[in-house]
Design a binder for these strands. Structure first.
Lengths: 217, 217
DNA sequence: GACTATTTATAAGT
DNA sequence: ACTTATAAATAGTC
């Protein structure tokens, strides 16, 4: 998926350049008067309240529409639940089944199955205990030197910050986390696609698309 | 002018008509030798197996992507579960929540309104939409040089990471966020205490519309 | 709530 | 797979 995007991006080199230049200019001149092109969005929490609410409405309807289409076109079971920040609940379930039933099935499925082709995760990660003292950092695991440094830098600096800075910084870290998540999810999606071809077909009849894999990546 | 507007609407209407006619024709004449225009799809189960599988993959990716974006952009909780016809499970849960948690919340909310597409909402409002791009990292805002560097470091490096690294890194960022939050909370508590005597309302962090929406529209 | 300009998603084609 | 043509989604506006 990311590769597809990459290709497309190459095609749109011109546009990209244009955008990057604009962004660079905006940074230099200070944020503010820059107006985004229509239809283009950064992957981060929308700051403006009104805008965020409007977008939520539009995007929510689009998401549900897509979910519905997937269920119909591909004969898949789909369950979708969305809570607005205000706590309102919106849900969609493809067939006659209920959300309870579909979610229930998730729990019943053993790890082996889930592990194989699942896109996202109920992995143990992501639950943060705010137990540690800042002076006593958890040992900076070696993901890469850069990352370790970045993390230390963040946390050390944090102690010196004003409220405003803190608030802003929290936003930044939140955004960074969002970016990381998105990338990971896309990678998972990629892998899932790749592995799909290697997966045996439980109920094959006639032609099978999974039988024609020509190696893995 | 009004005529222009009318013209546009007519064009749209034509598209709709065309589509509907095509669908109707397909039904009456049976399955087809008919070649659809690119990008155009009838809302019905795809008969061709290969095609169905291919589109399932693509659309599934798109759906999850959008679900993720909605959660990030609009700060909403999202749970999405998809079963392929083969019975494989794909799921996505927005943040630190689990499917079970979100599901649990569903049960607690009584009144349900179901619309045309099987979409249920606890709110009279309609539905909505979403979309996003992975290659587009959030712009590095400058809070301090250190922070900017850290953030950029994070995001740049992230693109090169393996899955294992990504997972680990996500964990680190999550922890960092937790740390920042804890610090901010402590500071808020301090300030609140201090200023409580002055009977002043120091700062509000919220631009969370969940807090401001008291229920009506 | 509707309109238009753009971007994104994606059905077909190679 | 990779590319291209089209449709759909949607951000910015009024």
């Amino acid at each position: 998926m990311a590769e597809d995007v990459g290709r497309r991006r190459m095609q749109q080199q011109q546009q990209e350049d244009e955008r990057l230049k604009a962004a660079a200019a905006a940074v230099e001149e200070g944020v503010g008067k820059r107006k985004r092109k229509r239809g283009r969005v950064e992957l981060r929490r929308i700051e403006d309240r009104t805008s965020r609410q409007v977008r939520f409405s539009k995007r929510r309807s689009g998401l549900f529409k897509k979910a519905f289409e997937l269920s119909v076109l591909c004969d898949a079971e789909v369950a979708l639940v969305v809570f607005s920040p205000a706590g309102r609940l919106y849900e969609f379930v493809s067939s006659d089944t209920s959300v309870e039933q579909i979610f229930g099935r998730c729990k019943d499925i053993p790890d082996t199955v889930i592990d194989d082709l699942n896109i996202a995760a109920r992995d143990p990660r992501g639950y943060c205990n705010i137990q540690f003292d800042l002076n006593e950092q958890p040992a900076p695991e070696s993901v890469s030197e850069l990352n370790s440094f970045a993390q230390m830098a963040l946390e050390l600096d944090v102690k010196e910050m004003s409220m405003a800075e803190l608030t802003r910084f929290e936003e930044i870290v939140t955004e960074a986390l969002a970016a990381v998540k998105s990338i990971r999810i896309m990678k998972v999606a990629e892998l899932t696609q790749t592995e799909a071809r290697l997966k045996r077909d439980p109920q094959k009849k006639g032609d099978n698309w999974s039988g024609q894999e020509s190696g893995k990546e």
